[in-house]
């Protein structure tokens, strides 16, 4: 299903947005990914993934408050949409399905 296609990085970003429910804006997402996945994310990669998913309809966003630390600029909070949820479900399901299809023999490493 092309409609629900998610890249690996996109999936992680989408999930992290879910984890940070209500607090998911650029800096927080980046830090969360760094913390949980132990993975350095460039601002460019993150932001482009967010906008891409927003235009696909997996995310929506609204402006939040501004702080002095941000030079008076507002934060943009992201939220998963129903479609985003579906995409996640679809992705997980397809993985699980594939996982279940693997014959037990494939994991028999003794002979190798």
């Amino acid at each position: 299903m092309k409609k629900y296609q998610l890249g690996e990085f996109e999936e992680i970003v989408l999930l992290t947005v879910g984890v940070l429910y209500g607090e998911a804006y650029g800096v927080a997402i980046k830090e969360e990914i760094a913390k949980r996945q132990n993975r350095k994310v460039s601002v460019g990669a993150l932001q482009s993934a967010l906008r891409r998913m927003e235009s696909k309809g997996f995310l929506n966003s609204e402006f939040g408050e501004s702080t002095k630390m941000r030079g008076g600029k507002r934060k943009r909070y992201f939220k998963i949409t129903a479609l985003g949820k579906k995409a996640l479900d679809y992705n997980m399901q397809s993985r699980v399905e594939l996982w279940n299809q693997i014959p037990d023999v494939a994991f028999e490493f003794k002979l190798c």
């Binding site: 650029g26 600029k73 507002r74």
Partner: peptide, 15 residues
Amino acid sequence: DFQEDIKGDLEEYYV
């Protein structure tokens, strides 16, 4: 449309 919040993010990283 994207400028304000990304600039804010950058500012935060900067600080």
